[in-house]
Amino acid sequence: MSKASSAPVTGAKIRKIVTNSIVHVILAILAFIWVLPIFWVVLTSFRAEKGSYVTTFFPQSYTFNNYKKLFTDTTILNFPLMFKNTFVIAIFTCIISTIFVLSVSYCMSRMRFKMRKPFMNVAMILGLFPGFMSMVAVYYILKALNMSEGSMIPVALVVVFSAGTGIGFQVAKGFFDTIPKALDEAAIIDGATRWQTFTKVTVPLSKPIIVYTILTSFMAPWIDFLFAKVICRADAKYFTVSIGLWKMLEKEYIDNWYTSFAAGAVLVSIPIAILFLLTQKFYVEGVSGAVKG
């Protein structure tokens, strides 16, 4: 039997190898293209030559000073302070907006009420507008609430980054929809309340989407520039990293700060990377095994 089938198997095998090689070559090229800019930023962050313009891809000499400069040369651009500000804002934003997103998604997925469909449509349409459209309006509202000055600025930023996130429920709702309703019903028959169903049944089964929500909401304050700029205005004490990084590229600073800018960009990715590594193992846990039989 093995003899008879060996010829066609090798043919298929060869075809498989060829296909796989082609696929891998394409993937390798794409991976190279995608990773290249990041690789370049990392290289630049260790570059010893000053300035923004270089003639060689690889730095001629390497140094750790760009990182050191970020944390020691704080009189003009106080990076450590900005980093701390952003970190605190990110933690609060992350907690609040994760709760918002999960609550809204769960309601939309599990509850049935009159305004459900219209609400989802309105949310969808509102979501189509770019956020910066309301930038100045948001500022004036915050000002009316006395949140545009002094130590209220970080609070204002947390509010801005988290208050509206519930509207981005679609992805999480889609995920909750895939969890069989039978599980909820079983829990309710066993005497569980809505809250218990959510915390004891839905949440343990939804780790991937929770991790996804946590990651995206944690990232928002790190990458947002517009709102941070509009709300902080001239208050350097409350600048976030994105404002600092932007300032490093102004014509007065670019020559001295360009390599430190790259170092700053690398540093910004560290908290996000750590959070990802911590939560990564939940990412792969799916709903598999939830429903037995």
Binding site: A123, G131, M133, S134, I141, V160, F161, G164, G168
Partner: peptide, 20 residues
Amino acid sequence: MKKKVLAVLLASAMVASLVG
């Protein structure tokens, strides 16, 4: 960052209730 419009609505509702 995305959904600031709702933020506006929520916040303006808050303002309205405060001022009201």
